Amino acid sequence: MECPECGGERSPFAVPSELRVDLPNEPPFVLLCTRCLAFEPVANPDTEPSNFDTISDALPDHGDSAAAMVLATALLSSLALNRQHIDALFDRVEAAGADPLLVLDRLADDPEIHPDFDIESRRQQLLQLRD
């Protein structure tokens, strides 16, 4: 499936049930572009869901923290609208023992990830908001 934002490959991912409450519309699945991280909630994907940790080696590997980190990063495209969701997802990543701001640094350096926003700028904004 081609991403309408960047033309990259979109894959289906199952959103862990405990993370759904931290996302707008509580989707059971998302179609996520592995290049730009744009996602679309879907009720039922046509193919078998992928694993979030296949997106980047920069992601934490502690249970659902990779999913929480990817989804929080994708929501950074609209920080103003999604701040509450991002904070909740970052709290989950931190509770699993990873530093979400450090993961953002690593994602910004990942040559395969090209979101439609500047990860480093959003990281700085988040740092100011979370202090």
Rank of each mutant, 00 (worst) to 15 (best):
E48M: 06
D131F: 11
E9D: 12
R122I: 08
A72T: 06
E2S: 06
L81D: 00
E40G: 03
S65P: 06
A43S: 15
S11Q: 15
V93G: 07
F117K: 07
D46E: 14
L31Q: 10
L89T: 10
P16A: 03
A66S: 14
R123L: 05
A108V: 13
F29S: 09
F117W: 11
R122L: 10
L59G: 00
T47R: 12
T73E: 01
E48G: 04
A38L: 06
S77L: 00
R20Q: 11
N25W: 10
F52H: 05
D57N: 12
L59M: 04
E5F: 11
P45Q: 11
D109G: 02
A72K: 04
L104Y: 08
D46Q: 12
R35I: 08
L127M: 10
P115V: 06
D46I: 04
L81I: 00
L81N: 03
L19C: 07
E94V: 11
L31F: 00
R122M: 13
R20H: 00
R92N: 03
I113S: 01
P4K: 12
P115S: 10
C33G: 06
V21M: 10
V30Y: 09
G7V: 03
P16K: 04
T54Y: 01
P16Y: 01
A72E: 05
A14C: 14
N82G: 01
E5L: 14
P28R: 01
L129T: 07
D118P: 10
D99A: 13
H85S: 07
A67D: 04
V42H: 04
F29G: 01
L102W: 11
E9Y: 10
L126H: 14
I55V: 15
R20G: 02
L37P: 04
L126K: 13
F39I: 00
D131Y: 12
H114G: 10
V103Y: 03
P41E: 00
L129C: 02
R35Q: 10
A66G: 08
A66Q: 02
S77I: 02
L104G: 05
A98R: 02
E5S: 14
I55G: 13
A74C: 03
A80N: 14
T73Q: 06
T47Q: 09
P41Y: 03
V21G: 11
P12T: 00
E5Y: 13
P45S: 11
V103T: 08
L75H: 04
R92I: 01
E2C: 03
D87K: 11
P100G: 03
V93I: 02
A74M: 04
D46L: 13
N82A: 04
L31H: 09
A66L: 00
A88S: 08
R122N: 15
V103Q: 02
E18R: 14
Q124N: 02
T54M: 04
D110G: 07
S50C: 13
E120R: 15
H62N: 15
E112V: 12
I86G: 10
D91I: 02
A88N: 07
H85R: 06
E18V: 13
V70R: 07
Q125L: 13
C33R: 09
V15L: 12
N44C: 09
C6E: 05
E2D: 11
L101Q: 06
